[in-house]
Design a binder for these strands. Structure first.
Lengths: 317, 317
DNA sequence: TAAATTTGTGTAACTGATTACGTAATTAAT
DNA sequence: ATTAATTACGTAATCAGTTACACAAATTTA
C-alpha cells in the first residue's frame, strides 16, 4: 500500500490490520486443501488442547491470549462438531474441563501435514525478505510489554512541548499576565485575599525590590506561566516559592515542571539552603509537582493565607 | 506470547491480530492526549481527505484500501461531527463528493503535532529492534501480492506429496490393482469395452510381452496409480500411453503428473520419437495433464474405443 | 435508441473478536 | 459462622471491519 508510505508510521495499526486480513484470508481455503473440517479461528484452542491434557476455559484463554468469552464460544462450536467434550470439575463446580474427543484427536493427527507445509511456505517467503516479520513481531511484543505506545507518545509530546517553552525573567510588561494568571486559579478554587492583592498589584515593590524574583514561561513566545521566589525574613528559610500559575489552556505541556525547576535552580544559584511553600491539598497536580521536585511536608509555620492547609520545604543539597 | 513459539508460524495470523490489537488499543487515548475529538478508525479517511482535494466514496475506499461500505459509514460519522461535507456530483449523479469542512481542516491542523510525536515514538521503538516491523510488513505485502499464501502452501504440499511417491515397474502382484483402478474410472464415466478387458485381464500377454511397459505409483508404499506404455504396430507412433488411472483417494497428490512423466521418460529411454494417446474431453484434469506434458491434439487415427473423442501426440525432442 | 452491462453508493447481515455484566461456586476475613 | 471478596464462565452488547444485495445513474452494445 503506497498510502502507508505517505501517512507515516502513525498508520501502523491500520497497516498491520490489513496485512493480518490478507494473511488470514486464505486460512479457510488451506484447511479445505487438506480436507480438514475446521475453522481457522479454532486453531489456537485446538492446538492448545492437542498439546497437553484437558484444560479449563480460563486456562485455555490464558494459554492462547484470548478473552474467556471468546474461548467459551469457540468451545461451543467445536462441541457441535464433536471435536471436544466438556465435563464439570468435581472438586470445583465452577470449572468447565474441556478435552479433545477421539474425533478431535483424529483431526489433530490429520492436521500435522498442513502445519508442516504452512510452516515451510512461510519460511520460504521469509527467506526472501530482508526484515523478518516473525521476529519483528516478537520484538514489538516485548517492547510494548515494557512500555505501552501511549507512554512512549506521551514522552515524545513532553519532549517536544518542553522545547517550545522558554523561561525568562520578569519584566514590567508581564505584570498584567502575572496578575491575571494568578487571579484566575485563586478565584476558581478559593477567594482572593488581602496578601494576594499586595503581591499581584505591585510585584515590583512587594517581591522584586525585596530581593525576590519572578520567572515567566513563554510557550512559543506567549507568556502562559508565572512563578515567584519571595525573599523571606526567616532564620530557617531563605525563599518562598509562591504565586505559581499556569494558564489552563497550556495544561499538559510540562510548563509547570519547567517553571518550578527553574525557580529552584534560581534559588540554588542565589545560595539558598531551604525553600518554603504553602499550598492546598485540593490542588493535586500542584502537590504532585512539588513532590516530584523533592519538597517534603512540614508544619507549624504561621501563614497569612486562609487557603493554606499544607506547607512544604525543599532542602537544597 | 510463548504460545506462538510453540505453534510455529502457522499461527502468524493470530499473532499478527494480537499485535494489531495491542498497537491499536492505545490509539483512542493518544487522540485524547492531544484533545482531538476523533475516532482512530477515521484516520485513514481523514488523512486522505486532508491531503488532496475533495474525493468520492469509492476514490477514498481505493486510496485507503477499505471496502466502500466502510468508508460510507465512516463518512456518516464524520458528517455528524461536522468534519466533512457531502455534495452530489452534478456531472455524475451517482457520485457522492466528500470534502473537509473548516472544522475538519482545523482538526487536520491540530493533528500535526500528534503525527510527529507518534512517528517519533515508533521510530524510537524501532531503533531498539533488530528486525524492522514496518519494512517487514512492506516486504510481506509485496510478496503476497505476487503469490498468495494459499498458492505457496499448495506448492509445498505438492513437493511433500511428490517426495512420498515412488514410481516402480510392474510386477505380477500389481495386476489386481492395475485392473481395479482402471475399471473404477472407466465405469464411472463410461462403459467397459471389449479392448479394456483384453488389456486389463492379461497385461502380461497383451502389453508387456509385446514390448510394452507398465509403471505403478506407490504412495507411502501403497499402489495408488498405474499407467501403461503400449507398443504400437504403426509407422508413425512407437508407443501409446494408455490405461492411466489414479485412485480417487490419492487425488491432489500430484501422482498423475509423476506417473505420466515417468512413462514419457521411459519411452524416451527406449528411443521413442512419438507417443500417442486417446482420451475423452470430459476428463478435464487428464487432458490438462497431457497438455502440461507437451501432448498436442491430432485427429484421424482409427480407434477401437467408442469413448475416445480426442487423440493426442507427443513428439519427443 | 433500446437493452444490457457497469459503476457508485447505501443498507443489511455477518464475523471474529472484545468489554460489560450477571450468577454461581469457592476462598478469605471477621 | 456469616459476610465479603474472588474466581469461573456464560450471555449480551459492542466494535471495526467485511460480504451480499438492491437500486439508480452512466456507459456500452446491439
Amino acid at each position: 500500500m503506497d498510502f502507508f508510505e505517505q501517512t507515516g508510521k502513525v498508520a501502523i495499526g491500520s497497516r498491520l490490520r490489513m496485512l493480518t486480513d490478507k494473511v488470514t484470508e486464505d486460512a479457510a481455503n488451506i484447511y479445505q486443501l487438506y480436507n480438514i473440517d475446521m475453522q481457522p479461528k479454532w486453531f489456537p484452542v485446538f492446538y492448545s488442547l492437542s498439546q497437553g491434557e484437558e484444560k479449563t476455559i480460563t486456562e485455555l484463554a490464558k494459554a492462547i491470549g484470548h478473552s474467556h468469552p471468546s474461548v467459551s464460544k469457540i468451545i461451543g462450536e467445536m462441541l457441535k462438531k464433536g471435536y471436544v467434550q466438556e465435563s464439570r470439575d468435581k472438586a470445583d463446580g465452577r470449572r468447565n474441563v474441556v478435552s479433545l474427543t477421539d474425533a478431535g484427536r483424529q483431526v489433530a493427527y490429520k492436521i500435522k501435514d498442513q502445519l508442516i507445509d504452512v510452516d515451510a511456505a512461510i519460511e520460504e517467503l521469509s527467506a526472501q525478505t530482508q526484515n523478518k516479520l516473525w521476529e519483528a513481531i516478537g520484538e514489538w511484543e516485548f517492547l510494548l510489554e515494557q512500555k505501552t505506545l501511549l507512554r512512549r507518545v506521551m514522552e515524545k509530546k513532553k519532549e517536544r512541548d518542553s522545547a517550545k517553552v522558554e523561561i525568562v525573567a520578569y519584566k514590567p510588561e508581564y505584570q498584567e499576565i502575572f496578575r491575571a494568571l494568578n487571579v484566575e486559579w485563586i478565584s476558581t478554587y478559593f477567594e482572593m485575599e488581602e496578601s494576594d492583592y499586595k503581591a499581584l498589584d505591585n510585584p515590583q515593590g512587594y517581591i522584586l525590590d525585596k530581593g525576590g524574583h519572578i520567572l515567566v514561561a513563554l510557550y512559543e513566545g506567549e507568556p502562559l506561566g508565572v512563578c515567584a521566589l519571595i525573599k523571606m525574613n526567616d532564620e530557617e528559610y531563605d525563599f518562598e516559592l509562591a504565586k505559581m500559575a499556569v494558564s489552563p489552556k497550556a495544561q499538559g505541556k510540562n510548563i509547570g515542571f519547567l517553571l518550578a525547576s527553574a525557580i529552584v535552580e534560581k534559588a540554588k544559584s542565589l545560595g539558598a539552603a531551604k525553600i518554603y511553600l504553602e499550598s492546598n491539598t485540593i490542588l493535586k497536580p500542584a502537590i504532585n509537582l512539588y513532590h516530584k521536585l523533592g519538597f517534603k511536608k512540614v508544619a507549624g509555620k504561621p501563614t497569612p493565607y486562609t487557603r493554606c492547609n499544607i506547607q512544604m520545604e525543599l532542602v537544597i543539597g
